[in-house]
C-alpha cells in the first residue's frame, strides 16, 4: 500500500478516475457502465467525492447568506449534521446491495458504494458556487438559488438511479422497482436500529438503577 503511494502511476490513475466523475455526470449510462466494467473508477476517487460533499455541506453552514440558510448555531451538532449524509448513504448501499444481490444484481457492495459516491458529484460541483451566489443576490432573485439547488438534488437522484441500473445490469423498470424497494429496506433498517438502541438503553438504564439502588443501601 505505502509502496504504491510512491509510484507516479498511482496518482495518474487516481486523477484519471477522479476526472472520470465529470464524464459520468454528463454521460450517466455510458459512464457508469465503464465505471465498473472498464474499471475506470476508483474507490479513492469515490472517497474524495464523498469527502468533498461533506466539506461543501459544512461550508454551506457559515458561508451561505442568512437569507437562504438560517442556522440556529445553538442547535448544531456537526457530527449529526454530517451523519445526515453518511448515514442514509450507508443504509442505501447496504440496503441496495442486500436486495439486488438476491435478484441477479451484478454489482458488489464496493461497486454500489463507488457508483453512489460518483453520483454525488453534482452536489459539491453546484453547491460550492451556490454559496458564493447566495451572497450576491437579493430576496427577489431567490428563485435562481432555489431552482439551482433543486436542480443539483434532482441531478444527483437521476445519477444514482442510472448508476444502479448500469452496475447491476438491470432494465429501467427493474431499477425503479428496486430503488423503491431499497428505500423500504432503509426504513426497515432504521426501525430495527431504533428498536436495538432503545432496547440497549433500557438495558443499560436497568443496570444503572440497580447500581444506584445498591449504593444507596450501603
Amino acid at each position: 500500500m505505502l509502496a504504491s503511494l510512491k509510484k507516479k502511476e498511482t496518482y495518474s490513475r487516481y486523477f484519471a478516475s477522479l476526472k472520470f466523475s465529470l464524464y459520468c455526470i454528463t454521460h450517466p449510462l455510458d459512464g457508469f457502465w465503464d465505471l465498473t466494467h472498464e474499471k475506470r473508477g476508483s474507490l479513492a476517487a469515490a472517497n474524495t467525492i464523498l469527502f468533498l460533499t461533506l466539506l461543501v455541506r459544512i461550508l454551506k453552514l457559515p458561508y451561505t447568506s442568512f437569507m437562504f440558510m438560517m442556522v440556529y448555531w445553538e442547535g448544531i451538532n456537526i457530527f449529526l449534521y454530517l451523519a445526515s449524509v453518511v448515514f442514509p448513504l450507508a443504509l442505501w448501499c447496504v440496503g441496495n446491495w442486500g436486495l439486488t444481490t438476491l435478484f441477479d444484481g451484478k454489482g458488489t457492495l464496493k461497486q454500489v458504494y463507488m457508483a453512489t459516491c460518483y453520483g454525488l458529484t453534482p452536489y459539491p460541483l453546484l453547491q460550492l458556487p451556490m454559496i458564493f451566489l447566495s451572497n450576491v443576490i437579493t430576496a427577489e432573485e431567490a428563485e435562481f438559488y432555489v431552482v439551482l439547488g433543486s436542480f443539483s438534488m434532482l441531478w444527483v437522484g437521476v445519477l444514482i438511479v442510472a448508476a444502479m441500473m448500469e452496475i447491476h445490469e438491470y432494465k429501467m423498470g427493474k431499477t425503479v422497482l428496486f430503488t423503491i424497494a431499497t428505500v423500504f429496506a432503509m426504513l426497515v433498517m432504521v426501525f430495527i436500529l431504533l428498536l436495538f438502541f432503545s432496547m440497549i438503553s433500557q438495558g443499560v438504564s436497568y443496570f444503572i438503577s440497580l447500581y444506584r439502588e445498591i449504593i444507596f443501601r450501603l
Binding site: F66, M67, T138, A139, E140
Partner: peptide, 18 residues
C-alpha cells in the same frame, strides 16, 4: 439586519450596496 435575520430589509440594503 444580518444580526437579527431580517432578510427583507437586508435585501433592500444589499440591492443598493451592490
Amino acid at each position: 439586519f444580518t444580526l437579527k435575520w431580517d432578510g427583507d430589509n437586508y435585501s433592500k440594503a444589499f440591492k443598493q450596496y451592490r
